[in-house]
């Protein structure tokens, strides 16, 4: 199934709880799986025993150092068991344990299971308790260095950045990531997140962002992330219209002039033509006739997988034209 439990960590030195002198006072409690269980799991002996002891501890309510060890064992065998983590936090809190140590511990566990929700949640709670985000940027850097699109890591990072107002160096971080991989959609999203929470999309920022993004598109044209971002910026202009930005229109036309027929460019040209028509502005270059032609080009040559979609857009355009003619 998935990576999971590493019984092998115990290999030779593993001592069952029933043979550990300092656990002698605890009677394990079995699971009640009903008379006819389904989707049963053929637990290993270790798994069964550790969870039998965990149930015994839940029942007795003991919160001690040895229970901390038990929750470690239980979590290693099934890091997705949120109750184990919850109980571990209660023990940590009860013992007033050193939370920096816990942060190191959970960091190691996350490195082993970087796409597990429960371990990231545990880290977040520990950071909340510590009220100290000083390790978080470096920690998420390491995880993102292994997988620059790990959603959990980004989610944690955004929470840290927003909660502790750590926006200052974030744009630099995003710039670096985009230098490494201009197709990293998570990095583009983080760019938007940072700007919206700091400078905002002021006219000046919009101008800079348009130029920056246009530059990135010229480097790698067939990059949906950058095109989406480009359109995202336009939403922040006064009118929110694509066609209110001369820059965009000229950018598209220049790129088209170089022979570029990337679907994202062509899609934007169709949208520009449609928008101008809706606004009642007539334009020789961005006309509805051109939109129809570009839809055909997309359907038949440049974006064949979306053939039916572009035919649908064509029909929509024809309807709009028909409606205008009838109305006139």
């Amino acid at each position: 199934m998935t990576d999971s439990s590493s019984d092998c960590t115990y290999e030779e030195e593993y001592v069952f709880y029933k043979n550990r002198p300092h656990w002698k006072d605890v009677t394990p409690v079995p699971q009640d799986d009903g008379p006819n269980p389904v989707v049963a799991i053929a637990y290993t002996e270790q798994f069964r025993e550790i969870y039998d002891y965990f149930r015994a501890i839940l029942r007795s309510g003991e919160k001690s150092e040895r229970v901390l060890e038990l929750t470690n064992d239980a979590a290693q065998l099934n890091p997705a068991n949120y109750t184990v983590w919850q109980y571990r936090r209660e023990v940590l809190s009860h013992l007033k344990s050193n939370l920096s140590d816990e942060l190191n511990y959970i960091g190691e566990t996350i490195s082993e299971h970087p796409k597990n929700y429960q371990v990231w949640h545990h880290r977040r709670v520990i950071v909340e308790w510590l009220k100290d985000p000083s390790k978080e940027m470096e920690f998420t850097n390491v995880i993102l260095a292994q997988d620059s699109k790990n959603y959990h890591a980004w989610q944690h990072r955004q929470w840290v950045v927003a909660t502790f107002k750590l926006y200052d160096l974030e744009l630099e971080f995003v710039n670096d990531l985009l230098l490494k991989d201009v197709r990293n959609n998570s990095a583009w999203n983080q760019r938007y997140f940072v700007i919206i929470h700091t400078s905002g999309f002021t006219p000046n920022v919009i101008k800079n962002e348009l130029e920056y993004t246009a530059g990135k598109i010229r480097e790698v044209v067939n990059n949906e992330s950058a095109w989406n971002y480009l359109r995202g910026i336009i939403c922040h202009t006064e009118s929110g219209n694509i066609t209110s930005e001369e820059f965009i229109m000229k950018f598209c036309e220049d790129l088209y002039g170089t022979g570029c027929r990337c679907p994202y460019l062509l899609a934007l040209i169709v949208d520009i033509c449609e928008e101008l028509f809706e606004l009642g502005a007539s334009d020789e270059i961005f006309s509805m006739q051109r939109a129809l032609q570009v839809c055909d080009d997309l359907a038949l040559e440049h974006d064949k997988i979306r053939k039916e979609y572009w035919k649908f857009i064509s029909r929509r355009i024809n309807q709009a034209l028909l409606h205008r003619t009838t109305a006139a």
């Binding site: 999971s4 053929a42 290993t44 969870y51 099934n78 890091p79 997705a80």
Partner: peptide
């Protein structure tokens, strides 16, 4: 799947 799963499915236990 409805009958029994191997031990390495333990991370689905909860």
């Amino acid at each position: 799947l409805l009958n029994i799963l191997p031990s390495h499915a333990s991370n689905y236990d909860s």
